[in-house]
Write a protein that binds this DNA or RNA. Structure first.
Lengths: 137, 137
DNA sequence: ATATAATATAACCAATCTAGTTATTTATAA
DNA sequence: TTATAAATAACTAGATTGGTTATATTATAT
């Protein structure tokens, strides 16, 4: 399952993308305006920063800003950064087809189902969300 | 995530479907031939029985058999019987769009992604698996 | 300079879920 | 009547989730 943390990270990026480029927003402000747990916002920003997507300046009048074009970040990327690799079944995490059987038709079904899902998550970007919905979940 | 239990249930049904109609198989035989934990097989068969898909006769020379046409059972059904409703995010479990916002574009994305996945799981039946793969995960 | 506002980092925790195990009961064929 | 098999129920260790708490660090307004 896609975790709430991943969802929160998407919302944080969307919030940042909905501010004029170059301006900074404090993590508390992000948390308040999107009704997210403030401590989680800080925690997630650390991961987004590590990815190079966001950066912050400290001290009074400091804050966070987006460092990349929001159209360059799709939802699959955000989810995988926060949650790790996506897999709708455990089967898809192991790189060898289950145990000692040569091929596994179930695995093929899982893979097709998952790819169908991922194609949607890949084609939607943070920019899309920022444009279409000023305020989200 | 689709649990191993759901996957096991699919495998159990596939195993049953790969035997001549009307013949019975013991739960231990199912477990052995597909390398599943025997106790879990028993546990899952209880659920499948409740659904009316399988039935058993007790005692010596007893066993389990399929009660319905395997082409009538698709993977989505099995997963939902075992795991409960499918949701790739928590958001999709609540029937009201998040909190106090009128609409949520993220929710729409999740729904589209999930439906793309489900369409694959709905179009594949136990019969398909039984035909294409004698032995699976 | 220095208090303060803010990011940044790390460790911790309760509740739930997963993937089982164990034990007991009931029905039936031989 | 007894061995065999399904059926039912309760329990459990370990992992994951969705947080909280505590502390360190840094930049800037005064």
């Amino acid at each position: 399952m896609i975790t709430k943390k991943a969802e929160y990270a998407i919302i944080i990026l969307t919030e940042l993308a909905s501010h004029p480029q170059g301006t900074v927003v404090t993590s508390k402000e992000i948390a308040r305006s999107r009704a997210l747990p403030p401590n989680l916002v800080v925690q997630l920003l650390a991961v987004l920063k590590e990815e190079g997507w966001t950066g912050g300046t400290r001290g009074p009048s400091g804050g966070i800003k987006l460092l990349v074009d929001p159209s360059e970040i799709n939802l699959r990327q955000v989810i995988e950064i926060i949650d790790g690799p996506i897999g709708i079944t455990r089967c898809l995490f192991s790189d060898t087809p289950c145990q000692n059987k040569t091929h596994c038709s179930l695995r093929g079904v899982w893979a097709r189902a998952q790819n169908n899902m991922l194609s949607v998550l890949e084609e939607v970007t943070i920019r899309d969300l920022a444009e279409k919905a000023p305020r989200d979940c």
